[in-house]
Design a protein around this nucleic acid. Structure first.
Length: 461
RNA sequence: UCCCCAGUAGCUCAGUUGGCAGAGCGGGUGGCUGUUAACCACCAAGUCCGCGGUUCGAGUCCGUGCUGGGGAGCCA
């Protein structure tokens, strides 16, 4: 019995092969009286493999009736192609029809809109573009683990269900085992003591607080998993369920944090070029013609690093009339970030030392007493891709900040506890994995780089 | 959530001043060719997003709802 060979391997063959077994789906077919050309794809590569089915095959009538999307098993040989356009082709000795796709198969031999494909998200990975997206997504996932593992980081599985009612950002999805028809209410308030956990629970918006606890034990850790935001945001950069990479490092200050963020992004871009160049070429050709220039821009030189105050000064002196006014103390708006990354520097920019008022309680207060050791990495075209900070490791300052921001100390007893027993400077950041995917593929809508996107009003698949 | 735009055949789209519903691709049938998103001929295919209105007459104009997209806010 012959072992199945994948298209990718056959396309890379260096010599003809006598006996092969190939399994895959028909992407397109061109046939005649004497023979039929079948383009077979099995997902292993962007390119198809051309199969020649001769009319002498006993099921030739059925072969010419095959539709796009039909599944086949081909037995035959790999031979140099007589035609132009490909090195190898398969001469079929036997074509077994595994199944015939219905004529209504919606994927055609032409370009479809992303909008239409989103409506058939269960079929879109069968297209060239989405096949490429999800091959790259897989490669980059492994690359993230490789990057951290090679640096001695430990991979942490932070919990998905959390009892912390304020992990930092965004509205949360509630998790309950209560029956919607019979929710216990006492005094007009839902009695969560009768719920599964005996208190309110939610889906996590960040693994950071857990990661901090483990960084203070294992040294350098990272999480890489799904996070959830119940924000009603309808943009091309937001989804309700997305994947985040969150390294957290003990004995690490903001500058080292920025170094790691920059190194990680550069590593992942380089990795995409090394491992997925065939797929990247498709994006550079059809999705974003500037893609390779963008890569070069990321890899060729260090990122720009400026303080928030410097950013504000540049914006004020720009002479551009922004819709939102720029002043120290107000958060930078999309238009401001765009100006800095796309017009002024034309490069990735890290902005750090933000005013304390616009950042969460856990960021370390700087000596000026008015800024915190926060940093955001902004890239042209996408905006914020990473947000991070050095954490407040001083118990006293941390408590003071929590009071300022009206947070209940009691609920964070374990977090504050970590500052009592051998506290050390530590830092970390969060990288939005889908935003990285947008950067690497040039795909403009976040819904098109995640298998089944969850957005307000949409959970069909 | 706010602002703007769009919705016509399975898909991508055209449809003039309000006057017979169209093309290419896909599907079916036949032909032809070492073909490359093959090619040629013929055939089938429509709740013009839903509801209401104006009009002799609405795909077209008005109102409203739904869905999608772009931008904003929030953020990753």
């Amino acid at each position: 019995m012959i072992k199945r060979t994948k298209v990718l391997e056959l396309l890379r063959a260096e010599a003809p092969i006598d006996k092969i077994l190939l399994k895959g789906w028909v992407r397109t077919k061109r046939d005649s009286k004497t023979f039929s050309f079948l383009e077979l794809n099995d997902g292993s590569s962007l390119a198809n493999l051309q199969v020649i089915a001769d009319s002498s095959l006993d099921n030739y009538a059925e072969i010419t009736a095959l539709t796009t999307g039909s599944a086949l098993e081909i037995r035959g040989s790999l031979a140099p192609s007589q035609g132009k356009g490909q090195k190898w082709e398969v001469l079929a000795e036997n074509v077994t029809i595994v199944s015939v796709a219905d004529g209504a198969y919606p994927l055609q031999k032409k370009r479809h809109t992303d909008d239409f494909l989103r409506g058939i998200a269960h079929l879109r990975p069968r297209t060239n573009k989405y096949g490429a997206v999800f091959r790259i997504r897989s490669e980059l996932s492994f690359a993230i683990h490789k990057f951290f593992r090679d640096k001695g980081f430990r991979y942490l599985h932070s919990p998905i269900i959390t009892g912390s009612d304020c992990e930092g950002a965004g509205d949360m999805f509630r998790v309950t085992a209560l029956n919607p028809g019979e929710i216990p209410v006492s005094g007009g308030i839902i009695d969560y003591s009768q719920d599964f956990f005996g208190q309110e629970a939610s889906l996590t918006v960040s693994g950071q607080l857990s990661a901090e606890m483990f960084a203070l034990a294992l040294g350098d850790v990272y999480t890489f998993g799904p996070t959830f935001r119940a924000e009603n945001s309808n943009t091309s950069r937001h989804v309700a369920e997305f994947w985040m990479v969150e390294p957290e490092m003990a004995f690490c200050d903001l500058e080292e944090d920025m170094d790691l963020a920059e190194e990680l992004v550069q590593f992942l871009v380089a990795c995409a070029m090394d491992e997925c160049m065939e797929d990247i070429t498709l994006f550079a050709k059809f999705v974003n013609k500037e893609l390779l220039t963008v890569f070069d821009n990321i890899l060729s030189s260090p990122f720009i690093r400026i303080t928030y105050e410097e950013a504000v000064n540049i914006l004020c002196k720009s002479g551009v009339s922004f819709e939102f006014k720029v002043a120290f103390g107000s958060d930078l708006q999309s238009e401001h970030e765009r100006y800095l990354t796309e017009k002024y520097f034309k490069k990735p920019v890290i902005i750090y030392n933000y005013p304390k008022e616009i950042k969460p309680f856990y960021m370390r207060l700087n000596n000026d007493n008015r800024t915190v050791a926060a940093m955001d990495l902004l890239v042209p075209g996408i905006g914020e891709i990473i947000g991070g900070s050095q954490r407040e490791e001083r118990a006293g300052t941390l408590k003071k900040r929590m009071v300022e921001m009206n947070l209940d100390e009691k609920k964070y007893w374990w977090y504050i506890d970590s500052r009592k027993y051998g506290t050390v400077p530590h830092s970390g950041f969060g990288l939005g994995f889908e935003r990285l995917m947008m950067l690497v593929t040039g795909v403009a809508n976040i819904r098109d780089v995640i298998p089944f996107p969850r957005t307000p009003g949409s959970i069909e698949f």
